[in-house]
């Protein structure tokens, strides 16, 4: 058990596995995402209330879904960094934080553009959009703190503490923003919550969510490999690997 755990923590082992996994993640993910989007854009029926603008859902929901789960993954990795001092966990946090920020931004952007035909304005201080905005701030905080501390080890642990503090706060933020929203606005109809969604709508949605997950996996592997190469540049295996790639 512990041997597997140590192996999991070994950058060299991860590098090899990632190289093997990455083509699969990318191509299967891209195929699923494209299939979901084409299905959603061209073949899914029109929404009776929102018309065709609802077709934004097929990228809005995957982006929003992933934006939140990436932060939770980062928190798990942060816990691993603090408890077991596993180098790879911190590599993961560093590698995916910008990706998470971009996904959060995309969820916000698509939500805002969707709001224009639905609500008649680009931005509404709706509970979901607002908590997404706060999530974006949390991502920026993680990236800023990571960049500010130069020492690799303390930077890793400080970022881990911050991510964990953030993840404890996420449910509180969500809850309080929802409460605040009901206080200030009469219930508007929500973008993504439907009483019942026909299969022609949710199947492509599921496809695009899963596809984006796999593509995120590919991006995470790629960026982690880069980070490992930078950090482990002095080790023999990196030198050998680099030579082999170059020739």
């Amino acid at each position: 058990m512990w041997q597997i755990f140590h192996k999991l923590g070994s950058p060299k082992w991860f590098f090899g596995i990632a190289s093997k996994l990455m083509p699969w993640l990318l191509w299967v993910g891209a195929a699923m995402l494209v299939a979901g989007i084409v299905w959603g854009l061209g073949f899914a029926p029109k929404d009776y209330l929102q018309g065709n603008s609802y077709r934004i859902i097929f990228i809005h929901v995957p982006a929003a879904f992933l934006a939140q789960s990436v932060y939770i993954m980062m928190a798990v990795a942060g816990l691993v960094t603090l408890v077991w001092r596993m180098k790879l966990a911190d590599v993961f946090v560093r590698a995916v934080a910008p990706v998470g920020a971009i996904l959060t931004f995309l969820a916000l952007f698509t939500g805002a553009v969707w709001g224009k035909p639905t609500w008649g304005t680009w931005w509404i201080w709706d509970a979901r959009l607002t908590s997404m905005l706060i999530l974006l701030f949390l991502y920026f905080g993680v990236m800023a703190l990571g960049a500010a501390i130069s020492d690799e080890k303390s930077s890793a642990r400080a970022v881990a503490v911050l991510v964990l503090v953030g993840v404890v706060n996420i449910p509180i933020i969500k809850y309080s923003v929802e409460w605040w929203n009901t206080l200030h606005q009469p219930a508007t109809f929500k973008l993504t919550e439907k009483p019942s969604m026909p299969a022609e709508m949710w199947v492509p949605l599921l496809l695009s969510v899963l596809g984006l997950y796999l593509i995120f996996g590919w991006l995470a592997c790629l960026r982690m490999q880069t980070e490992i190469l930078v950090r482990e540049g002095r080790t023999r295996w990196v030198k050998e690997l680099v030579q082999a790639r170059g020739n």
Binding site: S53, I56, I59, L106, T110, P117
Partner: peptide, 9 residues
């Protein structure tokens, strides 16, 4: 609206 979203994405 739809195409802007997909383009930016």
């Amino acid at each position: 609206y739809v195409w802007t979203c997909y383009f930016v994405f």
